[in-house]
Simulated scan of single mutants.
Amino acid sequence: MGLGNHRRTANGPNKIASASSGPFRAAIGDSAITFDNAQIAAIDALSTPARHGYYLWGDVGRGKSLISETYFAAIPTDDKRRFHFHDFFRDLQAQIIREREPLERSLRRLLGNARAVFFDEFHVHDVADGVYLSATLKSLLDGGILVLATSNYAPEDLMPNPLYHERFRSAINIIRAELDVVHLGKGEDYRLTHAALTRGFGTGTWRTQPPVANDTPSIELNAAGHIIKARSVDGDTAVFTFSDLCTRPLGVAQYLWLAEKLRTVALIDVPDLATVDRDPLARFANLIDVLYDRDIPLHVTAAGEPGRLVEASEPPRDAKRIASRLSALKLA
């Protein structure tokens, strides 16, 4: 059935949520993982069938991805879709512009017959995403589609910029009123204390060395109409300077393009992150998010340790998450 064929009901749990509770509990039990008290409380909350879905939020490294991925895998239907938040809204905006069609029709194209949708790493920095999000949530809920979302932020903190917060308030209200908001409480950051990742992004490295002069001529890459400069390209591996990717005004769409075309990225001439200005540092954070989410190995040569990020005068809003993700890189 299509998007419009699962109508929202005023009362009672979502049928897919009800059908998922038992398989989710069984999968958690079969995992043989020892969960802490806050994680157990979150698992209990997701085991209680919701009317429309769940918004699971908490600090980095607390197991949100593990718990939500286990839930998503347990949903007993193949009619389900998982999206990284950035990817979904990039594709949605492109679809609307390309086809010159209403939001509802573009959503149907992206979601197909989905009866459940999982948005991973829910965070809003682009006001356009915030505007589309309200309409998207309304459409999903009206369609009776089960929504599962994870975030590092409480709904009220998703768009902190006071210039745009009021425009995003309707989305916050929808999340609070319609989804079961589940807080995964404070505890151990398992990314920092458990075994390092052994594939993809986790095979990357962070090498600290004094900056050296780099006069390598650049190579221009055409990223869907935007020019990205690289120092070298060898098959699906490319080398960029910090200036190439973070000082220049690039956006998430260009980083997603790189992640789709490349299998390994090297970033050189990275200054001490504590000395970097706000905008380049925010772009660096977006770059790390995209490469981590797409599991692309990253090799960094920098003037300082990765932890210096949080000592910047204006660190990115997601500094804790970015520092946690950078901890997966092996110090060389």
Results as ranks from 00 to 15, higher is better:
residue 281 L to S: 02
residue 278 R to P: 06
residue 285 A to C: 12
residue 83 F to K: 02
residue 332 A to T: 07
residue 60 V to K: 09
residue 181 V to Q: 05
residue 179 L to K: 04
residue 87 D to E: 15
residue 264 T to E: 15
residue 114 A to I: 06
residue 241 T to H: 01
residue 203 T to S: 02
residue 327 S to G: 07
residue 91 D to R: 09
residue 28 I to R: 04
residue 80 K to Q: 10
residue 264 T to R: 11
residue 280 P to V: 05
residue 138 K to L: 12
residue 96 I to E: 06
residue 254 Q to S: 11
residue 1 M to P: 12
residue 75 I to G: 08
residue 45 A to G: 06
residue 57 W to G: 00
residue 326 L to T: 04
residue 220 E to T: 14
residue 10 A to S: 14
residue 105 R to Q: 14
residue 276 V to G: 02
residue 323 A to H: 13
residue 230 A to V: 06
residue 59 D to S: 09
residue 194 H to N: 13
residue 41 A to S: 08
residue 306 P to L: 03
residue 246 C to A: 04
residue 206 W to F: 07
residue 168 F to I: 00
residue 146 L to M: 12
residue 274 A to F: 10
residue 115 R to S: 11
residue 50 A to D: 03
residue 31 S to G: 10
residue 127 V to M: 12
residue 129 D to L: 08
residue 141 L to T: 11
residue 146 L to V: 02
residue 235 G to T: 05
residue 227 I to P: 08
residue 54 Y to N: 00
residue 25 R to W: 13
residue 252 V to M: 04
residue 320 K to G: 15
residue 65 S to V: 05
residue 70 T to N: 07
residue 320 K to A: 15
residue 116 A to D: 09
residue 171 A to H: 06
residue 139 S to I: 10
residue 186 K to Q: 09
residue 264 T to A: 13
residue 309 L to Q: 04
residue 316 P to V: 00
residue 314 E to G: 12
residue 313 S to W: 11
residue 172 I to C: 07
residue 6 H to C: 15
residue 75 I to R: 05
residue 245 L to T: 00
residue 317 R to T: 11
residue 173 N to L: 12
residue 183 H to S: 11
residue 94 A to I: 11
residue 102 P to L: 02
residue 276 V to Y: 01
residue 11 N to M: 15
residue 37 N to V: 08
residue 110 L to W: 05
residue 308 R to C: 14
